[in-house]
Design a protein around this nucleic acid. Structure first.
Length: 295
DNA sequence: CGATTTCCCTGGCCGC
DNA sequence: TGCGGCCAGGGAAATC
């Protein structure tokens, strides 16, 4: 479940290794969510950026600026092989797998859920693996995000000045939706998913189901969102089940979670048992003592 | 047009 | 051991 800290970790790993590379070949799993990967072939990588949970790979195609956009969904992973052993020009075949299995370098062996591959001009390859196929790939003219409505309507980056307490308060209060739902909507602030939403609300002492927040609560919540995301980045992301960084490594932020996934356990601040609920079809944990409505 | 609901996906885990 | 049921859940399409 890559959220902003996980995507940012991957971005930092990919940027130096990908920038300047020419995408000379591609392969994609036969699904409209992944076949756009082929549209990137023939372009050169100018840089790797991030917006919210979206990875934006800047491309240059004969002077025209394009973007290769990758959303990792729930289980998406990106990695770079040190070398690619093409035994087939198209889909990975059993012969390919056999070849990878003989390799002594684990990075040369994609998993069984490869969804896209870009071969680089120096023989390496960028691989996109996604067990559950919630991920998505698109190639568009630079800045043209009409085909990705959530990206097109994305709120400010959490560390941008535009993500102010007043912005958060007025946006939350103009809707009747629960504050947690709105944090997850990507429209008020970009990049927050279920893990960091629960963590931020717990830290700020805001009930996840609140429909209205005060100025004081908005100030605390704005700061908490920034803090939990910054700490998540510092810890290389949260690995609970599937998340791995671009080098196959696990993050360590799961060691520092106070709220997410801890329903039934005592609150680390007041020892009250954290409560489980479902908000907008998302599993939610909160402390009934620290997080009061209207807080 | 904004809000709400449905659908997409598979692996791990649990109980019988 | 085998298997049905359930859970994880972000984003886009469909529907209200």
């Amino acid at each position: 479940m890559p959220e902003l800290p996980e995507v940012e970790t991957i971005r930092r790993q990919l940027a130096p290794r990908l920038t300047g590379a020419l995408l000379v070949d591609g392969w994609a799993f036969a699904s409209g969510k992944f076949t756009p990967a082929l549209d990137a072939v023939g372009a050169r990588v100018d840089g790797v950026r991030r917006r919210g949970k979206y990875l934006l790979i800047d491309l240059d195609r004969d002077g025209n600026a394009e973007e290769l956009i990758v959303h990792l969904g729930m289980t998406g992973r990106l990695s770079i092989t040190e070398r690619w052993i093409p035994t087939s020009a198209a889909a990975p075949t059993p012969a390919d797998r056999s070849s990878w299995a003989r390799s002594t370098d684990a990075t040369d062996r994609p998993g069984p859920h490869l969804r896209a591959r870009w071969t680089l001009d120096d023989g390496r390859a960028l691989l996109f693996d996604d067990v559950r196929r919630f991920g998505r790939i698109a190639v568009v003219p630079a800045g043209s995000h009409d085909a990705l409505p959530t990206l097109a309507a994305l709120g400010p980056e959490p560390f941008d000045d535009a993500f102010s307490p007043e912005h958060l308060r007025t946006q939350v209060n103009r809707s009747e939706r629960a504050v947690k739902t709105q944090l997850l909507s990507q429209r008020i602030v970009a990049g927050v998913g279920n893990i960091y939403a629960d963590e931020a609300l717990w830290r700020a002492g805001v009930h996840p189901g609140s429909r209205r927040i005060t100025r004081a609560a908005a100030q605390r919540l704005r700061d908490a969102v920034r803090d939990v995301l910054a700490e998540g980045i510092d810890h290389g992301g949260t690995t609970l089940r599937n998340y791995r960084d671009a080098e196959g490594g696990e993050g360590t932020n799961q060691r520092y979670l106070d709220c997410y996934g801890r329903a039934g356990e005592p609150c680390s601040r007041c020892a009250t048992i954290l409560r489980r609920s479902v908000i907008d079809a998302r599993a939610t944990a909160h402390c009934p003592r620290c997080q009061r409505r209207g807080g």
